[in-house]
Design a binder for these strands. Structure first.
Lengths: 222, 222
DNA sequence: GCAAAAATATGATCTAAATCATATTAAAAC
DNA sequence: GTTTTAATATGATTTAGATCATATTTTTGC
């Protein structure tokens, strides 16, 4: 991790929903950080010192289980806030890890500054609250899916979610990450991908996946 | 559902974190509702008109799956807010159902009034945000448990959670609800309860469960 | 550029937990 | 207070998906 070039003060969650007068303060208090692919941005269990905003790149937000198992709870996109789970009432420890899955630039602000920003910018608070509500809904939907849907349906859901995030029918992801995101194992993902390929719902070249029929994929979810 | 006696304007999430000057307004805008055991307070998929606060009784917050499967995401306690997931950015539909599991009194306020309350009471907004952060953390922890822990461990987790909520080692819950809360089926819960009884970690009399060894139960989770 | 590590491919085996089936008991409704 | 309905008890059967094993390919660190 090293410092990186400046962000445009216009892209991230913080800048987008702060009043114009506050942007100068943001500019003073932000810090740019660069993470290479596979570098850890923050680690589950370590103390929360600040909040991150993804300026460029891709990040997976995940929970560890033992030495070699994980669950990916979210893929963060440009502009997204990272580390906000630490704002809860308990001890201030990150409850998830964040890892760059490609070279990534983030803006960082100390917790105190972010909390000041919330006080100064009502619409930032409001948006953050909405964001929490949305994430909570999504987490609970996923919980229900884990309990009641089979792997193939969860994989279909994951593929559609990834397509939505990338705003494209084509995207790149490792099978391992796809497994961790679908709440299953590599082997099971491998087999189910084969099935989707055979059914001509997707094509796969290495890590690149292309959705051929969003519609048919969606049928697996309902 | 029918009207019920007045609340004390001191118990619920809304009153607790509103400034004293606002309480009169709350008093004017609240409505008391009474729900008998098994009555639905609100239904997943129906439009959000307002927010509820649990004054007395017990409520399960659950997601439906098909005609006869569900997942209980939370048991609400006295003072708790209900319906707040509706505050997200999407369409204003409840994403969960809430059902009284014993005779229950709730306070109800229309959405507009609650949103006004948020604007007037910064500490209410702050608390709500913390509450969201906490719920999100918990939901993601449960997701991880669903993926990586076996049923027995999840049952242990559920029992300890129920004990925490009731602030007692003794509580009452149907096996069906315990299954829906642990993300499994009635039969599997039945068998695992038998095992815990055999191991002398709990005793069971009808729907009443008593935890004998919190410590040993906790070992199943780590 | 090469060695080591990680990710992928794919079959074989195993097992936890779902489903099915049926009896019994308890609770709620009329 | 009896009928209907829902919850509980418990064994038998099935199955989805995890785990294991091993070969191959790809990526990454030095």
């Amino acid at each position: 991790m090293k410092k990186a070039g400046n962000c445009d003060l216009n892209t991230c969650f913080l800048c987008q929903y702060s009043i114009p007068e506050w942007i100068a303060a943001v500019s003073d208090h932000r810090q740019h950080l660069f993470f290479k692919k596979n570098e850890t941005i923050f680690q589950e269990g370590s103390p929360v010192k600040g909040i991150f905003f993804l300026y460029d790149g891709k990040v997976k937000v995940h929970k560890q289980w033992g030495p070699d198992k994980e669950l990916i709870v979210r893929f963060a996109q440009q502009g997204d806030i990272l580390g906000h789970r630490g704002l809860g009432s308990g001890e201030r420890l990150y409850t998830v890890s964040a890892t760059a899955i490609e070279d990534t630039t983030v803006c960082y602000t100390e917790l105190a500054f972010f909390e000041a920003s919330l006080k100064v910018n009502p619409s930032l608070s409001l948006k953050l609250m909405q964001f929490y509500a949305d994430e909570l809904q999504e987490a609970e939907r996923k919980m229900r899916n884990l309990v009641h849907m089979d792997v193939k349906s969860r994989l279909a859901d994951a593929l559609l979610e990834l397509s939505r995030l990338h705003k494209a029918l084509h995207f790149t992801i490792s099978r391992q990450d796809l497994a961790s995101f679908s709440g299953t194992t590599y082997e099971t993902i491998y087999r189910n991908l084969q099935e989707f390929i055979a059914e001509k719902l997707i094509t796969v070249e290495g890590r690149a996946i292309t959705i051929l029929s969003e519609k048919k994929l969606r049928k697996y979810i309902a």
